[in-house]
């Protein structure tokens, strides 16, 4: 009897893990060249080519930086070379080159960054950052795209 329950739990856990890793794999791919096939408009070069600090931070083709500043993110976060000088949250100047975000709980992809901006509390319990899911999804994506490009 108890062996059955144990087996059931094991299968359940395996299934969850499998489902999660598929989701993450899909998210990982967003940054790859295949992203254009998914209808995203990221130029792969912006993501891969390392750029000098200030000029990269100020490049804002998708409007992500101005949305970042307009919604007050700069009150808590610093992005060197911009008007964001906050010291409460992590320095995001090189967010795009980190391997993981949210204290290591998420892979560093544009989609994961967007999910974190919308509901940080779901991904990192006890987080000090408030949720920004009241922003239009397109704005969140633009900010995530900009942050991911900060190498």
């Amino acid at each position: 009897m108890s062996a059955n329950v144990g087996l059931f739990l094991l299968v359940g856990c395996a299934f969850c893990f499998f489902a999660k890793s598929i989701g993450w794999a899909a998210a990982d791919e967003l940054g790859e060249p295949r992203a254009t096939a998914l209808g995203l408009t990221i130029a792969p070069t912006t993501l891969t080519a390392p750029q000098p600090d200030n000029s990269a931070a100020l490049r804002d083709p998708g409007g992500g930086l101005s949305l970042f500043l307009r919604n007050g993110c700069g009150a808590c976060h610093t992005i060197r070379g911009t008007n964001a000088h906050g010291t409460i949250g992590p320095d995001l100047s090189h967010l795009g080159s980190r391997t993981a975000i949210g204290a290591g709980v998420l892979p560093n992809t544009e989609e994961a960054i967007a999910r974190f901006i919308a509901r940080p509390d779901l991904l990192k319990p006890g987080v000090r950052m408030p949720a920004f899911d009241m922003l239009p999804q397109t704005d969140i994506q633009a900010i995530a795209r900009y942050l991911k490009a900060l190498q």
């Binding site: 101005s66 307009r70 919604n71 007050g72 009150a75 906050g86």
Partner: peptide, 16 residues
């Protein structure tokens, strides 16, 4: 004390 600057949201004409 993790209090952000008010100016981040409330000062400047470019804010939300």
């Amino acid at each position: 004390r993790n209090v952000p600057a008010c100016s981040g949201c409330h000062i400047g004409s470019d804010k939300n």
